[in-house]
Nucleic acid binder design. Structure first.
Length: 472
RNA sequence: GGCCCCAUCGUCUAGCGGUCAGGACACCGCCCUCUCAAGGCGGAGACGGGGGUUCAAUUCCCCCUGGGGUCACCA
């Protein structure tokens, strides 16, 4: 059975890169009827951020990337948190020691820094410590690490399913630390041990891992385990071209959520970073992607994360994919955030219907539709001018509107059109002052629809207020 | 810098020896129109360079160039 996993480390905000890699892991597992696992790589207690794990898991659920096994859902291969598996790593490091695939090293961080400066990297000097002596020092409690004993000379072959065979000279592979002096494993040891124990068959991860893959291959060989398939995906890039990072762009999925990006749109957009549908369709669901997925449709160039296109995609979902009811639910938190309330569910939906083609992020909705929900909105400078210019017309029009039985389009449209004609004005010269008066701005949905939604009372009140404003 | 990966419009990409090099975002124009959008139609815009292989290269191979990654007791 195909088993994939993502192995995020809880060191900060939930990263879009994690989401991106998660999509491909999820899709490949589902495509094969396999399992998708989440494993938390919390072996760095320096960088550990409380709450980060919960936020990463929440992000995955938010994006619809539900996993079969994970730290909160459990599963047959738990625990799924590396800090809870320390004994395991110690035991396997021990095995490596016994098989002469690893050795104990006693240099202090300061010494290592000096060696690095002088030799350009660790030179493997602790290999020369007689085994008995090393064991004795360890038993005496001397702090030390366990390092991989890279066989040299030699070559290590890494098969990447997307790039083919990559050969490494073992002289280029350092004797990396496997078990730190605090008893925690490094990524290299923990990831190999866990992937094996958890039955991971396909390792899909970021390209940043490609050059350390020979280390992992060596470990699989040392343990005598099957080597999984590797797929190294290109890294998300910032507009400059460098890998997307906190320094070069917004990396937190929470940031995009707060900006009013829909999970479906983010997921869809991220999928497009490397994957394309056979028919060229750009808007598609997760399960449609599972259906159509194949590795030869994945491109290897580092994709630049483009906020503009994400926003377009988001708008596409807002106006074409979500139902009106769904949209209403999505928009509510942003209404509340903006301090706006809505008189009824029906009213909110009617406004949404008018505004749908006019906003692209959820956050924009309260800003652009504020006049539908409260009276004391600001008048833009241009709107004020328009009101002043059309004040006389507005006074007349107000009287006529006030005589209408109600503000359905059947009444307002003929009246306004007739009014314009009688006044000898072009329709727009009537519309713009009216628009400015009742919304405070010059760009809004269609007039008749708006009048109907706002209602007679509100409209008359606003015209009066607008006139008062320019008269003062 | 060493090693590794990558390379089609500004951006995301299709292409898998013979195509007018296609689509999407952004941009420009037109249509629709009470404004703004949305939508429709049209436009501009790319195969980094040099060698090969081949009747024929965007496509296959090599070199260069460019970009990226990585060189921790971080992942």
């Amino acid at each position: 059975m195909v088993t994939t996993r993502i192995a995020p480390s809880p060191t900060g905000d939930p990263h879009v890169g994690t989401a991106y890699i998660a999509i491909f892991n999820y899709v490949w597992a589902k495509k094969n009827g396999g399992r998708f696992i989440v494993r938390i790589e919390d072996t760095d207690r320096q960088r550990y951020v409380p709450g980060a794990e919960e936020r990463i898991l929440a992000m995955l659920h938010w994006l619809g990337l539900d996993y079969d096994e994970g730290p909160d859902t459990g599963g047959p291969h738990g625990p799924y948190r590396q800090s809870e598996r320390l004994e395991l790593y110690r035991r396997y490091a021990e095995i490596l020691l016994e098989r002469d695939w690893a050795y104990r090293a006693f240099e202090t961080p300061e010494e290592l820094e000096r060696i690095r400066r002088e030799k350009g990297g660790y030179d493997g000097r602790a290999r020369n410590i007689p085994k008995a002596e090393a064991e004795a020092r360890a038993r005496a409690g001397e702090p030390h690490v366990i390092r991989l004993k890279v066989p040299r000379p030699g070559t290590i072959e890494v098969h990447d399913a997307l790039r083919g065979l990559v050969r490494y000279d073992s002289a280029e592979i350092p004797d990396v630390v496997l078990l730190k002096s605090d008893g925690f494993p490094t990524y290299h040891l923990a990831n190999v041990v866990d992937d094996h124990l958890m039955g991971v068959t396909d390792v899909i991860r970021g390209e940043e891992w490609l050059v350390s893959t020979p280390i992992h291959v060596l470990l699989y060989q040392a343990f005598g385990w099957d080597v999984p398939k590797f797929y190294h995906l290109p890294l998300l890039r910032a507009p400059g071209g460098a890998k997307l990072s906190k320094r070069t762009g917004h990396t937190s999925v929470d940031h995009y959520r707060e900006e009013g990006i829909l999970p479906e749109a983010l997921r869809n957009y991220l999928s497009l970073m490397g994957f394309s549908m056979p028919d060229g369709r750009e808007v598609f669901t997760l399960s449609e992607m599972v259906e159509a997925f194949s590795w030869d449709r994945v491109s290897l160039g580092g994709p630049v994360f483009d906020w503009e296109k994400l926003v377009w995609m988001n708008g596409k979902y807002i106006r074409e994919v979500l139902t009106l009811d769904e949209l209403a639910e999505r928009v509510k938190p942003f209404m509340t955030e903006a301090g706006l309330t809505w008189p009824s569910e029906d009213y909110l939906r009617r406004v949404l219907e008018l505004m749908r083609p006019r906003f692209e992020t959820l956050k924009e909705f309260p800003q652009k539709a504020i006049y539908f929900f409260q009276d004391d909105f600001d008048y833009e400078a241009k709107a004020q001018k328009e009101i002043a210019k059309g004040a006389a017309l507005l006074r007349e029009l107000k009287e006529k509107l006030a005589n209408l039985p109600d503000f359905s389009q059947a009444y307002t449209e003929p009246l306004i059109k007739a009014f314009a004609e009688e006044s000898g004005k072009k329709l727009r010269h009537v519309m713009q002052p009216l628009r400015a008066a009742i919304t405070g701005r010059l760009a809004t949905p269609g007039m008749y629809e708006m009048l109907e939604v706002l209602g007679k009372e509100t409209v008359i009140r606003r015209i009066e207020r607008a006139l008062a404003l320019v008269e003062s």
